[in-house]
Design a protein around this nucleic acid. Structure first.
Length: 199
DNA sequence: TAAAAGATCGACT
DNA sequence: GTCGATCTTTTAA
């Protein structure tokens, strides 16, 4: 079974399976502890909402690719494309733990403690040394590799909740993280969310 | 420890 | 021209 076949399922199914997976770039390896699912064209929070554009073209390609984009001009955020029939589904890699290549990761983020090296989407991309040039990388054969865990994280250890930092559709409980994992980032609303918390 | 504001480039309309 | 799936620094308690 190829990596693309393992990822050929709706984002909501694939996202929890990505927990505990290893993402390797050179010497640096990150074990994913927090992800968010983006359903694509039907998800107002997704870049793919409203159809393909230049930036999100990778999301409309085959599954098992790395979708990189620049956020706020300074941070690289990484996604893994998933879904069947080239659907625009993707899973945002929110946080993880650096399990190898610590020296390299530390040199990239000298201000961070070991725990914070990949705690957050921008940090994770930075610790791995990602750039916009990695957009579209094949995670099975490219410079960046993804290894799914041999034994999935048990459902009892997986928690779900609202996605972080979105203005729209922020109430969908499509965030997955490993319970009690110290590298999981704390939930924060969008800094410019509209109005007070509804409800 | 918790909360608030600044930074900064590409994509979209 | 405006916004963004954020991170870092600063200030207050």
């Amino acid at each position: 079974m190829t990596l693309a076949e393992q990822l050929a399922a709706p984002p909501l199914e694939v996202a929890p399976r990505l927990l505990g997976a290893l993402l390797r770039h050179g010497e640096v390896v990150v074990r994913l502890s927090e992800v968010e699912a983006y359903a694509g064209s039907t998800d107002p929070g997704s870049h793919a909402y409203g159809g393909p554009t230049r930036r999100n073209a990778t999301m409309f390609g085959p599954a098992g690719r790395l979708y990189c984009y620049l956020s706020h001009g300074i941070h690289i955020c990484a996604n893994i494309t998933v879904g069947e029939e080239h659907g625009p589904g993707a899973v945002l890699l929110r946080a993880g733990e650096v399990v190898a290549g610590l020296d390299v990761a530390r040199s990239r983020r000298p201000r961070s403690t070991d725990r914070d090296l990949a705690r957050g989407p921008g940090r994770l991309g930075q610790a791995l040394g990602l750039s916009l040039g990695h957009d579209g990388t094949d995670l099975a054969t490219g410079a960046i590799r993804l290894e799914l865990p041999a034994t999935p994280v048990p459902a009892s250890a997986i928690r779900t909740g609202p996605r972080t930092g979105l203005r729209r559709a922020s109430d969908r409980p499509w965030r997955y993280w490993i319970d009690a994992d110290p590298t999981v980032s704390a939930y924060r609303r969008h800094h410019r969310a509209e109005g007070p918390e509804a409800g």
